Simulated assay, not measured.
Amino acid sequence: MLAPVARPATNPRRFCAEVARIAVGCLHTELILYPKPGLVSLVDNGSHTDMTAATFVRSMFALRHYFARICRAGFDDAPFAVLKQLGIEAEARMMRATGGINTHRGAIFSLGMLCASIGLARAQGIAPGANGLRAVMLIRWGEDLAAHTRPAGATSHGLQAAALHSASGAREEGALGLPSVFEVGLPALRRTLAAGRSMQFARIDALFALMAHVSDTNVLYRGGAQAASTVRQHASCFIEMGGTAHPEWRSYAIACHQAFVAERISPGGAADLLAATCLVHAYLGGIGP
């Protein structure tokens, strides 16, 4: 494990509650972001007829204790079986809250693993850092995450799409230490902030970077390979034009949104990874108490 550094004593309960608050805040930040091609926001329901912003809010409320519990499990150096059971229970609560609608299954996994890793890193006195956080996740739970990529008998839409199109999904992301978060989303977020643009602009740029990079099983399940190609093409064009640095970025992003809605495309996997990116960014800024 990474070498620890001296830091003030931690109150585990308060610390994990704070991590949970930030995790839910990151999900809320993703929800209210606009324009956000094909996705549910406060402006409209995107490509969805079965969910609204209120559905997502109910889901977030149902998950608030999960993030604290899995962070504490990480703090206590719990085995992966414990983390997995917490995730299963959280998914059941989400489904009850939403009437059976999958709003945050990917986020339960990716943000959950990040919360557990943040808890373990704090318990071991490891200073906040992107490489250190990713190393904690892989060193402690990497083998279990790799075994988790193809569970026997699993039939989620994401797993079906991944198998059909030979694509990676949330589980594969986890097995590799969330490379899309650490190698794509976070650098895009940082570049925009370093250029002096706002956090809102940084989140938009990070989302489009993730859309251009991720083999989104949400997209593949709903629209197949053609829909996935459409997402990559639109996102790549946005990036090539300079993203939010371009004076007409908003008009282009809204046009992408309208095109995605027309084809019922929803890059929900990229949205989950954006929320995870925001959580890592918050962690790097320091989480108390």
Rank of each mutant, 00 (worst) to 15 (best):
L176A: 14
G196W: 11
S251C: 03
R150C: 02
L284P: 06
F260H: 00
A271S: 12
Y221L: 04
S166L: 12
F182R: 04
A225T: 01
S251F: 09
A167I: 07
H157M: 12
S198Y: 05
P247Y: 10
E173G: 05
S166P: 00
A271P: 04
C237I: 10
A194H: 11
I254N: 02
E240L: 09
S215G: 09
G242N: 08
I204S: 04
G243A: 10
L274S: 04
S251M: 08
G169Q: 00
G196E: 11
R264V: 12
L193F: 02
Q160Y: 00
A206V: 06
W249Y: 14
I265Y: 01
G169Y: 01
A228S: 13
P247A: 14
H257F: 04
A167W: 03
G153I: 09
R197W: 01
A163V: 12
N218W: 01
A194T: 13
G169I: 04
A195N: 10
I254K: 10
A276S: 15
F238K: 08
V261K: 13
A147T: 03
Q226P: 00
G158S: 09
A152T: 09
V231T: 07
G177W: 00
A275G: 03
G269L: 14
V231W: 05
T277H: 11
A275H: 09
T192A: 03
A188E: 06
A282V: 12
E173C: 05
P187R: 08
R222T: 07
A262M: 03
S168H: 15
I265E: 01
F238H: 10
T244D: 06
M211S: 01
R222E: 02
W249D: 08
G269A: 07
S266I: 06
I254F: 03
S166C: 10
A167G: 09
H157N: 15
V184L: 09
V214H: 01
A275K: 02
T217V: 04
A194V: 06
D216V: 14
V214C: 02
R191G: 01
A175H: 00
E143G: 09
P289W: 01
Q226L: 08
H165A: 11
A146Q: 15
A170D: 07
L207F: 15
G153V: 12
M199C: 11
L186E: 04
Q233T: 15
Q160E: 03
F182Y: 13
I254S: 06
G223Q: 06
A262T: 14
Q160V: 14
F260D: 02
